[in-house]
């Protein structure tokens, strides 16, 4: 009975312990960003000079780096990103995930068009993996729709890619290669454009279970 009484007391305590609610200054940032400064439904702030970025109609193009106003729940978290974008010859688009506010110390997934091919690189902690061979069926001369899972709460962060035009899974870095280049250590995500055109970007729950 003594043990049961103590357990009930502890149970009652946990039921009333809650850290939720309260003021969220990060949400203030999101609310303060004008609707015109968004890609799809994702509002952003510029990380460096935005002179060469074009936006306002829900798309984003040009040269520059943006950090999305809605951050990631925690460093140890998993997300699914949907990207719809176009690249001209030699241009690049980089997705930053689990990075700090300057989009450093995170996971960088870089897409670069060379001819009709799409080159893809993953970088973390100074290590870069070349995943290009897994994207050989992608036609980089037309608009691309790529789905990306980033699993950063596992001992080895790994990535899963889908071609959302065909529905095919392109790469699971945990199974197809040696996991990934490293881990991300922040709660921010964003994009770096080098003359890329982004139609849409979304962030949501991971698509792959593991």
């Amino acid at each position: 009975m003594h043990i049961l009484k103590n357990l009930l007391s502890f149970l009652s305590l946990t039921l009333f312990v809650a850290c939720g609610g309260g003021h969220n200054p990060d949400q203030d940032l999101v609310d303060g960003v004008p609707r015109s400064q968004s890609v799809g439904d994702e509002k952003f702030v510029t990380v460096d000079s935005s002179d060469q970025l074009e936006f306002g109609d829900g798309t984003l193009s040009g040269v520059g780096t943006v950090r999305f106003a809605s951050d990631l729940e925690s460093v140890a978290s998993n997300y699914h990103y949907k990207l719809i974008f176009s690249l001209e010859e030699g241009t690049e688009l980089t997705l930053h995930s689990h990075a700090n506010a300057d989009l450093a110390n995170g996971l960088d997934i870089r897409f670069k068009r060379v001819g009709a091919s799409l080159q893809v690189f993953g970088t973390a902690s100074g290590v870069t993996d070349d995943w290009t061979s897994f994207f050989k069926d992608i036609n980089a001369t037309q608009a691309m729709a790529i789905g990306i899972d980033v699993h950063n709460d596992e001992p080895i962060t790994h990535f899963i890619f889908w071609d959302n035009l065909s529905g095919a899974e392109l790469l699971d870095s945990a199974k197809d290669v040696a996991g990934g280049p490293g881990k991300g250590y922040g709660q921010n995500w964003g994009l770096s454009l080098l003359n890329a055109f982004v139609n849409k970007v979304e962030k949501g729950e991971p698509r792959g279970g593991h």
């Binding site: 946990t14 990060d26 506010a101």
Partner: peptide, 22 residues
Amino acid sequence: RLDAFSELSMKFQTTNQKRDDL
């Protein structure tokens, strides 16, 4: 069974203030 977990170093990104998490 009662479980508990907290990320003690969680912060608000805009103010760098500690963010309670449980």
